[in-house]
């Protein structure tokens, strides 16, 4: 999906599961992933069910990913930073 509305911010380079991704300044991790067409961020530990952004405001903890090695980070309230390593998958 192209960015909508007024000018997008400058590019911020992150990696997602080892692959480079161009996010934009001001993006949350969730926004960067969704912009890249990723809706599912992880599978659940028991039911192996896919999950992604649900509440989008830090309430529900469904969108958790691993950021720079720290697991359980809410993608929807975590801003991207240059060089950030994001790992999706199980959590």
């Amino acid at each position: 999906m192209p960015r909508l509305g007024p000018d997008a911010g400058p590019i911020v380079a992150i990696t997602v599961d080892g692959r480079p991704l161009e996010a934009r300044a001001g993006d949350t991790v969730a926004a960067a992933l969704v912009a890249a067409g990723r809706l599912g961020f992880r599978t659940t530990p028991r039911g192996r069910a896919p999950r992604g952004v649900f509440c989008g405001m830090g309430i529900c903890f469904d969108c958790v990913v691993t950021v720079n090695g720290i697991s359980g980070v809410r993608a929807c309230v975590t801003p991207v930073a240059e060089g950030m390593r994001v790992d999706t998958g199980s959590a």
Partner: peptide
Amino acid sequence: AVQILVKAHGV
């Protein structure tokens, strides 16, 4: 969630 993606991030 959709509103935040669209209005805060243009996504």
